[in-house]
Design a protein around this nucleic acid. Structure first.
Lengths: 218, 218
DNA sequence: TAGATTGTTAATCGATTAACAATC
DNA sequence: TAGATTGTTAATCGATTAACAATC
């Protein structure tokens, strides 16, 4: 099975679009509907589905319920995914309180921090000492973690997580981390994303001032 | 000038790597050094630079200071970029307190929320009523904003921002927003990013259990 | 100079799209 | 059936990489 990063991300987007279709009462959808909703071509939709072995009905489109179910299985959403979080700073706390994860079947089961003043074992999601992380991860066989620590600490935290048995990491520290062979690290660099927006705003501004829009492609 | 999304993002990464090289005392770097630091090929580095009209010295590599300066100008980092934030919930507050933006010459100058209990005009970064947004944006000619509101409110907030004159938006609401012709919307969907990590962890797990690693490409 | 590195062109690679046979 | 839609193959498009002349 050859998959590409983009096509997994699109699968998540199809799922989100399908849930919206479902709440609108749709029972079946065509590749065209999904394409419009996600902003891709219908060829792309059918191609993506064929990569993951998802098939619909010739002429009949796809049944929304079945399709959501198939995608959820592929994305591992048929069971609740337990995730740990390292870093109880501003970003970490925001993630802890974020409702979106549970809605999507992902649950932060514990948070870890090196700062003793931040610990709180009684909280709904306990904030524990980073020293306890390895035991916690191993006893619960947790495979996924989130890093929300300052950049200077991020690499060391990643090393500790991988050593504890974590296989996949979502990193919010503004430094590109790279994992080992059989692990995944997904870097979300907020500064960089904002920088990117600023670049295009300036580029668009220059383009419109010079009437050269056609030279810009975003 | 034909540019691609990826090549602007790489430009930010080069800049970050260069700052690290600088702090290590490097005066000049070669395309090879940057390639290693960012995880691309040296061809890619030189190609990217040529797209942006950045040139170095044949044989002599690139002078770190000059290169950083050139990249900063391209990315619009030669002056402080004023940004507004809409949404003073958990994520919004975390972004307000986030130190990384100012370090990178980007400053959140005001936050807006519809909830009157959240307003705080005296805070270091004032939290104002969303009703005041348009005036604020127009009088200060602000072009960039961040959305950190629940998904159900996101589209309406985007419309208000564009109407006020905002040209570029970084959206953290878990719904893909699309802007108008001459605007940029960059969607950062945290749920989707975590979902993506989970997919690959499961895929790697399956691959290693089945000894089929060669069938997976990430 | 000889060796090394840039800048750019051509080749390769991969991802997207168009087209269409199969078929309901 | 006729019309419409899937699933897949082939064509296209764009991005990355390799190669190398220029040159310091």
């Amino acid at each position: 099975m050859i998959t590409t990063k983009n096509c997994v991300i699109r699968l998540s987007r199809y799922k989100n679009a399908l849930n919206r279709f479902k709440s609108l009462g749709f029972v079946k959808v065509f590749s065209d509907n999904l394409a419009d909703a996600v902003g891709v071509t219908s060829s792309q939709v059918r191609k993506d589905f064929s990569i993951f072995g998802i098939s619909g009905n010739k002429k009949g489109g796809y049944k929304v319920d079945e399709l959501v179910e198939k995608i959820n299985i592929i994305l591992g959403k048929n069971e609740i995914q337990q995730v740990i979080l390292v870093g109880a700073g501003h970003m970490g706390k925001a993630l802890l309180k974020y409702k979106g994860f549970e809605k999507e079947g992902m649950k932060i089961v514990a948070c870890f921090d090196v700062d003793p003043t931040k610990l709180n074992r009684e909280a709904q999601t306990p904030i524990l000492s980073t020293k306890e992380m390895k035991d916690f991860v191993q006893s619960r066989r947790i495979k996924v973690g989130i890093i929300a620590v300052p950049d200077a600490a991020a690499q060391a935290v990643l090393d500790q997580m991988l050593e504890a048995g974590i296989k996949g990491v979502l990193n919010f520290a503004p430094i590109t981390l790279r994992g080992a062979e059989d692990t995944v690290v997904n870097n979300v660099n907020i500064e960089l994303e904002l920088e990117n927006v600023i670049y295009y705003v300036n580029a668009l501004g220059k383009a419109s001032r010079a009437n050269e829009n056609q030279d810009f492609k975003i």
